[in-house]
Design a binder for these strands. Sequence first.
DNA 1: ATGAGTGTTATAGTTAACTAGTACACTCGG
DNA 2: CCGAGTGTACTAGTTAACTATAACACTCAT
Lengths: 123, 123
Amino acid sequence: MEFKDNIPIYLQIEQYLYQQIVQGQLPAGTKIPSVRRLAVDLTVNVNTVQRALQQMNANGILITKRGEGNFVTEDEALLAKTKQHLLDVELQHFTEQMRQLGVKRDHLVEILTHYLEEYTDDR
Amino acid sequence: MEFKDNIPIYLQIEQYLYQQIVQGQLPAGTKIPSVRRLAVDLTVNVNTVQRALQQMNANGILITKRGEGNFVTEDEALLAKTKQHLLDVELQHFTEQMRQLGVKRDHLVEILTHYLEEYTDDR
DNA sequence: ATGAGTGTTATAGTTAACTAGTACACTCGG
DNA sequence: CCGAGTGTACTAGTTAACTATAACACTCAT
């Protein structure tokens, strides 16, 4: 995994895990890879992984069982709420950025549609 | 001006200036505030302002006249291209993030529309 | 020429992010 | 019980971002 510069790695790891979870690659109740495993896979230090997990743990999205590992919560309501929150954050960020670039709300959908048409390709 | 944590100040300043320019608050050819003025206004060090300007200068969007100040380029084509680029960056980032959250392209417009309706308020 | 206003550069110090390495504590299957 | 696998914690060191401060160089109006 390559990381963008200018944004802390531990936040990118956190985001990566959130994505894995809301997308279902890491379903509710599953054990996520160990911190050492993640550290190797992400070519990152154990401490950095740990830091990424702390926030998620505090949020209740991850349950830590000492000596066993970290598990995705089985609280489906929390998972749904989390996903919605992640979507809202992106939507809020996007609309705010576009506003600051001088795009009126009325034009937002139009611009997005146009963009999507223009880049019909992969991604 | 308040800065977000977790993202370098000089980048936020750069972004701020880009926005001022593409929105027309800083029209083509105008002199932007001096580095010392900006440093005070943004409650930031001169060096940090300097760093923010360097990239914009390299991009040709700002013209530096030693002893006089920094001026917005008069190259309208470059300005237009820059604005389009900023929009594209946001659009690309948004669609990519939504994709990673499991949102299909077909649903993107729908979700955005729904979001805009839900938050009819200010901002 | 001088002074005010400008960009430029350099030094030194602080802090947050990250790494490397080590050690400790817990759980579970054998 | 023991060893492998796990999370946790601590120390030490590096680097990038940022600050504070100062000095230098240029331009222009007076």
